[in-house]
Nucleic acid binder design. Sequence first.
DNA 1: GTCTATAAGGAGATAGAC
DNA 2: GTCTATCTCCTTATAGAC
Lengths: 200, 200
Amino acid sequence: MKKGEKTKNLILAQSLQLFSKNGFSGTSVRDLSSSVGLRESAIYNHFSSKKAILAEIFEKFGQSTAGLNLLDDELINMLNKPQKFMQTFSEKLLRKWGDIEEIHFFNLVLKENGTEINGIKISVNSLLEDAQKVWVMIFTEMTNHKFIKKGSPEIFANEFIAPLFFIRMKFLLDEDNIDLKSAIKQANEHTEFFWESIKR
Amino acid sequence: MKKGEKTKNLILAQSLQLFSKNGFSGTSVRDLSSSVGLRESAIYNHFSSKKAILAEIFEKFGQSTAGLNLLDDELINMLNKPQKFMQTFSEKLLRKWGDIEEIHFFNLVLKENGTEINGIKISVNSLLEDAQKVWVMIFTEMTNHKFIKKGSPEIFANEFIAPLFFIRMKFLLDEDNIDLKSAIKQANEHTEFFWESIKR
DNA sequence: GTCTATAAGGAGATAGAC
DNA sequence: GTCTATCTCCTTATAGAC
């Protein structure tokens, strides 16, 4: 990181927090600068406009990984034990979702859903669809290797992911009431229930 | 409805639409009045403040029914046919969710999640929890009457509702891309899949 | 890179005529 | 109930000194 980027990153971090709490329109450059400890005008030394800050937040956090980065070797080697695989993955995913920056970003996406930024529409849907695609792949693989029973990988993916998103909304949305423990517990219950439906 | 309430209701309707699209902070009284066809000051003849409009929107739409009002006699008499019951209910629920005012209100709740209004916190969670409670009751009933297999009604409720919310987010969130047909199709697939897990 | 000062317009809200 | 006119404060953003 360049030396001069320190303040810029501080502005980005504070912006993410404030935007996620009060929305883009609900946050003034004044709010923002005072939370960083600068004057308003100093902000414009790092960003050309308020909207440019939002754009850069989405550049930084916006490339949804849909949990793809969680698929390390340890997990891949578990593909032949689907229940263990799903349980391990869920827990990793929820821990990632429980991270304060992830929570802020998710809240921001919910608040700014539909807003256009640099010609790209902010969309909750894209988050859901990305996750779905990954799991269609995984269940296709599992079906091909006969680790699970025959069936539509699309339906399997929906049925597996939907409750995880539900859990995220219930336990990992309000930063003052993060309940990772309950989230993981409920995810385990889900995986167990789901496994009964897809085991051979 | 009183005679003088006509304009007031028009203001409420337009506000719901604009707030849901641009957020509360992103909508000015000016935007609002011009969309109604009045001057700003005329708004204050019906509401004491901009915030009072938001409050009244939540009074009008806010009492989540969680689908309770969908439980008519026709449905209640189907309790002994759980699959048919769930399928009929889902379709009714999705049709309700596909209503343009419901979509606007849901988007508003997502945008203003966490905002306090008259001391009450706007919360997506309360929507989820309300729905969950209703279905815990239903599955308890079904279990007691041995229409479905033994199991935790709470888990059954989560597993049944979560995919419906997922479907709502996917097909009934963006008012310019409402896809009720796909929503109902996917809900039927879900019900069928879920039924296999809970039938005796 | 941050400061002070300032521009130019938008915000919510009120007063009083019709 | 709606209008015109107006108030006061806040908003994003820029200019130029240090």
